[in-house]
Design a protein around this nucleic acid. Structure first.
Lengths: 196, 196
DNA sequence: GTCTATACACCGATAGAC
DNA sequence: GTCTATCGGTGTATAGAC
């Protein structure tokens, strides 16, 4: 919102410490429940019961905090995806992960923030590419394993699946349900056909 | 950002006037090019060369301005969709509209704002439902016309198409291209099959 | 590691004159 | 229809003490 722009070489706290995580926990809660407009150093401090000054002991700038928050979140999400991809019914587990774990609101807030914070944008790109790679590999492996083939390539299928999962989550949250049951049935049919 | 909360019954200017549109034009530019954090009454006034006070002559609050901006944009978009749905190759025209007209950045900014502004959220819901209805009808009509049938219902297909178009636009803007060519080819094949 | 205190900028919204 | 002037409030970020 404002303009100091010069960032001094003030003393900084260690990343990964308990308080550091508490601040990101608070920030994540605020971003999900109250939105980007409320994601301020004052609000974070208030939420975890410290003074505002301390936020700037652990994070150089607010933008920096936001980037770290996304980094932590995306690393956890990638871990879930990797785990899912190694399971018995990998595609179903991946689908459930995509449709279920991260809040749609959180995603839309980060998307908008990425338009403004360049480093966040690069983290988002990296996350999309990494998660996509996991999904493409899982689809290709599952098809080979079951000996089925599709006129649609694994990479196109992965993109369709990711897009659809995102839209389902977002619309579900908004309260729009047109076509959801039909589409869920289509996905279910596809997953079942690969589990026989 | 602030707290006045009480909105007086001050004198207001007419909606739809030239200056009113100029303000929304400015707001749209700022939202697309600079993001929601820069979308302020002062910035809008500066952009179109008037004083800040005037913004509050035409709009009761900033939230109100944002809602009006989305309303104007979505009405134009629905108009394009209706026009496309009446054309010869309706599905292709609708696809091009979805993938091309409105900037992906603008969409993500509105999505985030809708988390906070309740009236905007309802406008977004209405827009999704209205555009979806047009697309479902167009798909059903095209299939009947060509005498083809699909194991996927028109409403599920419409949801898939809308999701995929949105993701393609967003990723394209971010610079992610994984699976895009393959998916575009799939869509092209589907559209061609309905044009024979 | 955490605090008090503070500089400085900016924002939403209003009153009332021209 | 547009302006000057202003109030009250919040934000980022810093200096420096404990």
């Amino acid at each position: 919102m404002n303009n100091p722009k010069t960032v001094s070489d003030r003393r900084m706290g260690p990343s990964g410490s308990e308080t550091w995580h508490a601040m990101l926990d608070g920030a994540e809660y605020i971003l999900r429940e109250e939105g980007h407009a409320q994601l301020t150093s004052r609000r974070i401090a208030e939420r975890i019961g410290v003074k505002q000054r301390l936020v700037y002991y652990y994070f150089k700038t607010m933008d920096d905090l936001i980037v770290e928050l996304f980094r932590r979140l995306s690393m956890r999400e990638l871990e879930r995806l990797r785990e899912a991809s190694h399971s018995e019914r990998s595609l179903r587990e991946i689908w459930n992960t995509n449709v279920g774990t991260t809040d749609a609101r959180l995603i839309s807030e980060f998307m908008a923030l990425a338009n403004r914070i360049d480093e966040l944008k690069h983290e988002v790109i990296r996350f999309i590419e990494d998660s996509r790679a996991i999904e493409v590999d899982a689809i290709a492996a599952a098809m080979t394993r079951k000996g089925v083939s599709s006129p649609i390539s694994p990479s196109a299928l992965a993109l369709i699946a990711a897009s659809v999962a995102l839209s389902l989550s977002r619309e579900e949250q908004l309260g729009v349900r047109s076509g959801h049951d039909e589409l869920t049935a289509v996905v279910e049919g596809f997953l079942s056909s690969l589990e026989r």
